Computed example of a mutant assay.
Amino acid sequence: MPSELGDFLKGRRAALRPEDVGLAAYGERRRVPGLRREELCMLAGVSVTHYTRLEQGRTNSASPDLLNAIARALRLNEDESAHLRNLASPPPAVRPAPSRPEQASPSARQLISAMADVPALVLDRRNDVLAWNSLGHALLAGHLEFGCVKVSAQRPNLTRLLFLDEHFQDLYVNWAEEATLAVASLRLIAGRHPDDRRLAELVGQLTMQSHAFAERWNRHPVRTCTSGAKRMHHPSVGRMELAFETLQIPGSPGQRIIAYSAEPASGSEAALRLLASTVADAAQDGRTRDGSRNPEAARRR
């Protein structure tokens, strides 16, 4: 992905001032923000010609030593350095055949169904929801039908919902932070899988339909997000702060389980219990709150 690599390098150069890396600017008027190529190459100890060819996408050969030197000079963190290496990797000689729609394994579905008091869902690497339990559905997307995750063409995508669905946007107290984090995570995945057609289509759709997404995407943020906290305002039970943890599913093409929990004896735990009680009440006749049939809930009657 030469253009992606060039944009990433130029963006990181522009973000560094000479004084940030110990270079004297002498008050000179600079035509471009940040470091010049020559300054970066001096810091990294690399050839200006070689670096320029790399930034302009005119070479597919970048040694690990060269990339590590550039990463150090640009002060990239671990995620950004990994992203740089992914972008600089030569493209595959043969494009893979279109992948079949992914499915959550029976064992993964069984596991999250058994977690009745914990909101949980199974995601693929693109953030498509492959499965969720009743409480996970009620927490994140009770306005959608429970069974929509079973049809690949109807599956919700958490990143798409975050930028294009008002109900989902209103769920997050700090939406702007969540949006930036979501884009940074998606950037990292896109760098790892440059030939993922469905992922490229998702990025294209969001770029065209959401100015907020396009603006963040063009900044090239990169970050891994496997745990943390979500500040939410649920339409039924109010404010909650929930911790989340991610479990990668071995042997799958990037699938993972995400589960949410609340601090014991906190207001957030009380709110989560209230939501679970609401789900249990709806399960008495085997139906979700929006009226659609929920087989998982029916089994627990």
Rank of each mutant, 00 (worst) to 15 (best):
T180K: 00
I112E: 12
D65M: 10
E102S: 11
V237D: 07
A182G: 02
V21P: 13
S47G: 15
G45W: 02
E177W: 00
Q284S: 08
I70T: 11
E39C: 03
P90R: 11
E241V: 09
R287P: 07
A25N: 14
R36T: 15
F244Q: 00
Q248E: 12
T49L: 06
C225E: 02
G251N: 02
F168E: 04
E28M: 14
L188D: 01
A62E: 06
T159H: 09
A15P: 06
I112V: 10
A108C: 02
L181Q: 00
L5T: 04
A14K: 09
L158Q: 14
S292D: 14
R256K: 11
R231D: 04
E215M: 07
D79F: 02
Q110V: 04
R299L: 14
P91M: 11
G238V: 07
A270T: 08
V222R: 03
T207K: 09
H220C: 13
A176R: 10
S261K: 07
M240H: 03
A69E: 04
V203M: 04
T278V: 07
L139G: 08
I112C: 05
V203H: 01
S105K: 06
R155K: 04
V183H: 00
A179H: 00
H211F: 03
D195C: 12
T159F: 04
G142F: 08
Q205E: 14
I70L: 12
A93Q: 14
L202C: 05
V48C: 01
H211L: 08
T288C: 15
M232V: 02
A44P: 08
P90Y: 07
L40D: 05
E263R: 13
A108D: 15
E178D: 07
